[in-house]
Amino acid sequence: MTKKALCIMSGGMDSTLVAYIMRSRGYEIVALHFNYGQRTADKELESFRSICNDLEVREKYEIDLDFFKTIGASALTDHSIDVPTGGIEAGVPITYVPFRNGIFLSIATAIAEKEGCSAIAIGVVEEDSSGYPDCRESFIEAFTKAANLGTKDSTKVTIEMPLVRLQKSQIVQEALALGAPLHLTWSCYQSEERACGVCDSCRLRLRGFERAGAVDPIEYV
């Protein structure tokens, strides 16, 4: 029987690599994408679909979550808050979306149970992330326990986070080694045409490519 992994995929570099890692481990990929009112929702969805085509995914889910815009409190979903472009700062940034990964994982658990997936995979990165509390390894481990307590006894799911301890440069190197289509990925927080190059996500991505001695294949302003 084929083992299946539900991969939460934003269209970005990290979650794309996770999907290719899970495929390399022999899993059939079930892909999950969220449209949650983020500034670059259309571009991220386009990237997700292109990556799914490259992976030859047979089953994918696109979930709309409009309540994040109602909550606000994040520069990603509230257009009255500017996306920071002055450089990466310590602490939790204004681009943090309240408990986003917790909500994503809750929905992912329901789909994984329905699809018979033995694993959920998420591209959280702790060491080289932007300081998001819901990217911490301890949080994912705690959520795994809750997911298994809240599902059928026959449902046994692990939450895989293969990048959690990697630096962005290592992620670039691993993606290149696995042949992940980085040219299809999108990381920019604020632009859908050419990446801005100055938001936190662009800075992390560009620094990762530089330290890996590689050239980023996407176009920047």
Rank of each mutant, 00 (worst) to 15 (best):
A214H: 08
A214L: 01
P93L: 05
Q170T: 07
Y96D: 00
I71A: 06
A19G: 09
F209M: 00
I120N: 05
R49T: 05
G208D: 05
T77A: 01
K4V: 12
E56L: 10
E115L: 12
L65A: 13
E193I: 14
A119R: 13
A19T: 11
C199T: 12
P217Q: 12
I94C: 01
I171P: 01
E219K: 14
R100Q: 13
Y36D: 02
T2I: 11
V215Q: 11
M1I: 14
G123C: 02
S10P: 07
S130R: 08
A90Q: 11
K114H: 15
E141T: 12
D66E: 15
K3N: 13
I94V: 15
K60L: 08
R58F: 08
T2H: 12
E174K: 15
A73C: 06
D54Y: 08
K145H: 13
V18G: 04
P93C: 07
E59Q: 15
E127H: 13
E46W: 11
I88V: 15
H79Q: 12
E44Q: 10
P162E: 03
A121Y: 01
S169P: 03
L55I: 06
C52G: 04
L55K: 08
C7E: 04
F48G: 01
V97M: 03
S138I: 04
S154A: 09
S201I: 00
R207I: 09
R23K: 15
I171V: 13
G11V: 03
T77W: 06
L6S: 11
Q38I: 05
D78H: 13
S187L: 02
C188P: 00
L184V: 06
P181K: 09
I218N: 06
L184S: 05
N148A: 07
G26M: 10
F68Q: 05
K156Y: 09
F34W: 10
A121T: 01
C196Q: 11
C135V: 04
R39N: 09
S129T: 06
V172W: 01
D14T: 02
K152C: 04
I71M: 08
F104S: 03
I81A: 05
L184T: 02
S74R: 09
K114M: 08
G87A: 07
F34C: 00
S191H: 13
V157K: 08
A73M: 10
T151P: 04
R58P: 02
V221T: 14
L76A: 05
G12S: 04
T158G: 02
H183L: 01
T2Q: 11
I103P: 04
C188N: 06
L65Q: 11
G213P: 06
A112P: 03
F143R: 06
R49V: 07
K152V: 00
A90N: 12
E192W: 04
E219V: 15
S50T: 03
V164F: 11
T144D: 10
T109S: 14
D134Y: 11
G26A: 13
N35R: 15
V221K: 12
R136A: 02
R207D: 14
K69C: 01
R49F: 03
E127W: 10
G72Q: 03
A142L: 01
F48W: 12
V221H: 09
